[in-house]
Protein backbone atom coordinates (compact mmCIF):
# COMPACT_ATOMS: atom_id res chain seq x y z
CA UNK A 1 0.00 0.00 0.00
CA UNK A 2 2.87 2.26 0.88
CA UNK A 3 4.22 1.77 -2.58
CA UNK A 4 1.07 3.16 -4.21
CA UNK A 5 1.18 6.34 -2.22
CA UNK A 6 4.80 6.88 -3.19
CA UNK A 7 3.78 7.30 -6.80
CA UNK A 8 6.44 6.92 -9.44
CA UNK A 9 9.75 6.76 -7.67
CA UNK A 10 13.06 7.34 -9.37
CA UNK A 11 14.53 4.65 -7.20
CA UNK A 12 14.96 1.41 -9.12
CA UNK A 13 13.49 -1.72 -7.59
CA UNK A 14 16.20 -3.96 -8.98
CA UNK A 15 19.66 -3.75 -7.50
CA UNK A 16 21.81 -5.71 -9.95
CA UNK A 17 23.19 -8.19 -7.45
CA UNK A 18 23.51 -11.77 -8.63
CA UNK A 19 24.29 -15.01 -6.84
CA UNK A 20 26.56 -17.80 -8.15
CA UNK A 21 24.73 -20.75 -9.66
CA UNK A 22 23.61 -23.43 -7.19
CA UNK A 23 24.76 -21.30 -4.29
CA UNK A 24 21.59 -21.74 -2.26
CA UNK A 25 21.37 -25.46 -3.03
CA UNK A 26 24.75 -26.17 -1.48
CA UNK A 27 24.49 -23.72 1.40
CA UNK A 28 23.28 -26.22 4.02
CA UNK A 29 26.08 -28.62 3.15
CA UNK A 30 28.67 -25.84 3.33
CA UNK A 31 27.46 -24.78 6.75
CA UNK A 32 27.76 -28.37 8.02
CA UNK A 33 31.28 -28.56 6.60
CA UNK A 34 32.23 -25.35 8.33
CA UNK A 35 30.80 -26.60 11.63
CA UNK A 36 32.68 -29.89 11.24
CA UNK A 37 35.90 -28.06 10.48
CA UNK A 38 35.48 -25.96 13.62
CA UNK A 39 34.93 -29.07 15.71
CA UNK A 40 37.74 -31.17 14.25
CA UNK A 41 40.17 -28.35 14.93
CA UNK A 42 39.69 -29.18 18.58
CA UNK A 43 39.59 -32.95 18.23
CA UNK A 44 42.77 -33.15 16.17
CA UNK A 45 44.77 -32.00 19.16
CA UNK A 46 43.77 -35.01 21.27
CA UNK A 47 46.40 -37.56 20.10
CA UNK A 48 49.12 -35.10 21.07
CA UNK A 49 47.60 -34.44 24.45
CA UNK A 50 50.06 -36.66 26.35
CA UNK A 51 53.00 -34.85 24.74
CA UNK A 52 51.56 -31.54 25.87
CA UNK A 53 51.33 -32.86 29.40
CA UNK A 54 54.93 -34.11 29.20
CA UNK A 55 56.11 -30.79 27.79
CA UNK A 56 54.17 -28.89 30.41
CA UNK A 57 55.63 -30.94 33.28
CA UNK A 58 59.18 -30.51 31.97
CA UNK A 59 58.61 -26.79 31.62
CA UNK A 60 57.22 -26.67 35.15
CA UNK A 61 60.22 -28.52 36.56
CA UNK A 62 62.63 -26.21 34.73
CA UNK A 63 60.79 -23.19 36.09
CA UNK A 64 60.84 -24.52 39.66
CA UNK A 65 64.56 -25.33 39.43
CA UNK A 66 65.30 -21.88 38.02
CA UNK A 67 63.22 -20.29 40.72
CA UNK A 68 64.93 -22.25 43.51
CA UNK A 69 68.46 -21.73 42.29
CA UNK A 70 68.45 -18.11 41.48
CA UNK A 71 65.16 -16.86 42.71
CA UNK A 72 65.69 -13.80 40.60
CA UNK A 73 63.02 -14.41 37.96
CA UNK A 74 60.41 -11.87 38.91
CA UNK A 75 56.80 -12.60 38.14
CA UNK A 76 55.21 -10.42 35.51
CA UNK A 77 52.87 -7.82 36.89
CA UNK A 78 50.30 -5.56 35.38
CA UNK A 79 52.87 -2.76 35.34
CA UNK A 80 55.03 -4.70 32.90
CA UNK A 81 52.42 -4.35 30.19
CA UNK A 82 53.00 -1.42 27.91
CA UNK A 83 50.05 0.98 27.87
CA UNK A 84 49.92 0.56 24.10
CA UNK A 85 49.46 -3.22 24.48
CA UNK A 86 46.52 -2.68 26.78
CA UNK A 87 45.02 -0.13 24.42
CA UNK A 88 45.40 -2.48 21.46
CA UNK A 89 43.78 -5.26 23.44
CA UNK A 90 40.76 -3.10 24.25
CA UNK A 91 40.53 -1.85 20.68
CA UNK A 92 40.61 -5.32 19.13
CA UNK A 93 38.25 -7.04 21.52
CA UNK A 94 34.57 -6.37 21.69
CA UNK A 95 33.44 -6.28 25.29
CA UNK A 96 29.85 -5.26 24.77
CA UNK A 97 30.03 -3.34 28.02
CA UNK A 98 28.22 -0.07 28.42
CA UNK A 99 29.69 2.77 30.43
CA UNK A 100 27.31 1.92 33.25
CA UNK A 101 28.40 -1.69 33.29
CA UNK A 102 32.04 -0.66 33.45
CA UNK A 103 31.21 1.75 36.25
CA UNK A 104 29.69 -1.14 38.20
CA UNK A 105 32.95 -3.09 38.08
CA UNK A 106 35.33 -0.23 38.83
CA UNK A 107 35.27 0.84 42.48
CA UNK A 108 34.84 4.54 41.80
CA UNK A 109 34.53 5.35 45.51
CA UNK A 110 38.04 4.17 46.20
CA UNK A 111 39.60 6.12 43.36
CA UNK A 112 41.49 9.34 43.91
CA UNK A 113 41.99 11.91 41.18
CA UNK A 114 45.73 11.20 41.33
CA UNK A 115 45.17 7.54 40.39
CA UNK A 116 44.05 8.69 36.98
CA UNK A 117 46.28 11.71 36.48
CA UNK A 118 49.90 10.88 35.91
CA UNK A 119 51.35 14.20 37.06
CA UNK A 120 50.61 15.23 40.55
CA UNK A 121 50.21 18.93 41.12
CA UNK A 122 53.20 20.39 42.83
CA UNK A 123 52.54 23.40 44.98
CA UNK A 124 54.89 25.61 42.98
CA UNK A 125 53.07 24.68 39.78
CA UNK A 126 49.82 25.77 41.29
CA UNK A 127 51.28 29.05 42.46
CA UNK A 128 52.82 29.60 39.05
CA UNK A 129 49.47 28.95 37.42
CA UNK A 130 47.68 31.35 39.71
CA UNK A 131 50.41 33.90 39.20
CA UNK A 132 50.04 33.78 35.44
CA UNK A 133 46.30 33.59 35.24
CA UNK A 134 44.95 35.69 37.99
CA UNK A 135 45.21 39.39 37.30
CA UNK A 136 45.28 40.57 40.82
CA UNK A 137 46.85 37.98 43.03
CA UNK A 138 46.11 39.95 46.19
CA UNK A 139 42.48 40.27 45.26
CA UNK A 140 41.99 36.60 46.00
CA UNK A 141 42.13 37.76 49.58
CA UNK A 142 43.26 34.50 51.03
CA UNK A 143 42.13 34.44 54.61
CA UNK A 144 44.81 32.04 55.75
CA UNK A 145 47.50 34.52 54.89
CA UNK A 146 46.25 37.09 57.27
Amino acid sequence: MDRLSEGKSVIPKEEGFVVPENYFESLHENILKKMDAEETKVIRLNPYKKYYYAAASIAAIVLVVLGLNWNTAEALTFDDLAASDIETYFENNEFDLSTYEIAEVIPVDELEINDVLENRFAEENMLEYLDENIDDFEALNLEDDE
Binding site: D2, I11, P12, E14, E15, G16, F17, V18, V19, P20
Partner: peptide
Amino acid sequence: YFEGDEIQLKLQKAIATLPEKQKLVFNMK
Protein backbone atom coordinates in the same frame (compact mmCIF):
# COMPACT_ATOMS: atom_id res chain seq x y z
CA TYR B 1 28.40 -10.88 -9.04
CA PHE B 2 27.20 -7.33 -9.62
CA GLU B 3 25.50 -6.83 -12.95
CA GLY B 4 23.88 -3.52 -12.22
CA ASP B 5 23.73 -0.72 -14.76
CA GLU B 6 24.75 2.87 -14.18
CA ILE B 7 21.57 3.78 -12.29
CA GLN B 8 21.82 0.75 -10.05
CA LEU B 9 25.42 1.58 -9.24
CA LYS B 10 24.37 5.13 -8.47
CA LEU B 11 21.67 3.74 -6.19
CA GLN B 12 24.31 1.85 -4.22
CA LYS B 13 26.37 5.03 -3.98
CA ALA B 14 23.33 6.88 -2.69
CA ILE B 15 22.60 4.20 -0.09
CA ALA B 16 26.24 4.29 1.01
CA THR B 17 25.88 7.96 1.97
CA LEU B 18 23.11 7.21 4.48
CA PRO B 19 23.72 6.81 8.22
CA GLU B 20 23.66 3.19 9.38
CA LYS B 21 20.13 3.16 10.75
CA GLN B 22 18.56 4.85 7.73
CA LYS B 23 20.39 2.42 5.48
CA LEU B 24 19.08 -0.60 7.36
CA VAL B 25 15.52 0.69 7.44
CA PHE B 26 15.56 1.64 3.78
CA ASN B 27 16.83 -1.76 2.66
CA MET B 28 14.40 -3.64 4.87
CA LYS B 29 11.41 -1.58 3.84
